[in-house]
Design a protein around this nucleic acid. Sequence first.
DNA 1: GGAACTCGCCAC
DNA 2: AAACGTGGCGAGTTCC
Length: 464
Amino acid sequence: MKSIPTRLDAYQLIHNGVLALAHAEQSGMRIDVAYCEKKKKHITRRIAHIEEELAKTDFIKQWKKVFGQKFNMNSNHQLGTILYDVMGIESLKQTKSGKGAIDEEALSQIDMPELQQLLKTRKFRKTRDTYLDAFVREQVDGWLHPFFNLHTVKTYRSSSSDPNFQNIPKRDKETMNTCRRAILPREGHQILAVDFSGVEVRIACCYTEDPKLIYDTVHGDMHRDMAIELYKLDSLDKSHPGEKNLRQGGKNGWVFPQFYGDYYGNCSNGLLEWARIGYLTDDTPALVHLSDKGLLKLDKNGNIKDDSAFIEHCKKIEDDFWNVRYKVYTKWKKTTWETYQKKGYVDLKTGFRYSGIARKNELLNAPIQGAAFHCLLWSFTRVDEIARKEKWDSRLFAQIHDEMLLDTHPDELEYVAKTVHRVTCHDLQKEWPWIIVPLEVEADLCPVDGSWNMKSGYKLPEVK
DNA sequence: GGAACTCGCCAC
DNA sequence: AAACGTGGCGAGTTCC
């Protein structure tokens, strides 16, 4: 294809995509049922132990007295009533419906060790009931076949269910190991995972044609740049652990939320969270550094007393971010929103049309999120077609929005990896000339017969 | 006894 | 004026 995709191309993408995903569903993956059962029991014992200790505390005794027969340590509703109505604690955070929040953030702000223990049981339950339980329930003879849907998401992304393969823990290492330990390749095979790096921002480059965004994405490091501005640093060395946290702050506390449509008032909180665990190369804690720069006032214990100067600072940076640094992006947002208000839709680069009632952030996000996923879907489909045509033993078995997972035979690994690399980084751009920045992929590999938690970086063979 | 709802939490 | 985008799902609760 040389021209801009049409509605027919969009249809064809979905049609072929559904077939490729059906093949992956049919392949499925191996699940270690004996391990799941053992781990479930282990977690149940740990929950019981924590709950036994908690039962001895005055806090839980009071809770029991109030609810009597109906007492349930796992009831969020009861917990909220006890904390905010019975004990009269003032809630620092509210839920959407206006009640006192009892999520991890809210409970951590209350100085009661019992609540930390309660959070531990919540985490264990999540692991046991949402993941391990679902794996055992959904497997048939040790094989798991999660669904991958293309008809449920309004941005034309995918979803997964029964079980959802797209939200298995990754960031928390302990939980990651517990859950991913259950997922195995076919005997004598190994799991290869290939994901696009920063594909959404690259697709944003294609829509907006913002020269600064393109430069930063292809040659620069916007997360570092923003961390330097936000935390008033002279430079940032990302190989230094303390400064790496500050770069993470620039990324997860600023760049991502800003691109999703958040504003400085929320971002400042996230940035300060990262600053708590960040420090400079001379060992100055980041909060002390911000205080030296006059952006924070700290009390004797080093806690934040006043962050209003920092918030004002973030406000200025936000203004610069959208009106100077990425002003072309801002122009795209304005015209896209105005066109939507006149016509009632926005078209995706991949031939789809997003229409219906949308808020500004939703509307501006949809074409980017959708088309970014379509890069994965097209590549996934192409790799599946090649694998079948060439009668590979290796197979695709899952997908997580910007990542494809293969069950590979060691003898084919090199060729498979090379093919995936070529499809994602060369063939795709040939197909879609609207992709005006290079796309890049990263890969991880698990050992032969190794479970999914055992992955480590794998250097993809060069193409040509 | 099930549908619909809230809340919390996992992923990208 | 507006105030983080897309999902799935478990548990508890309320409503019918």
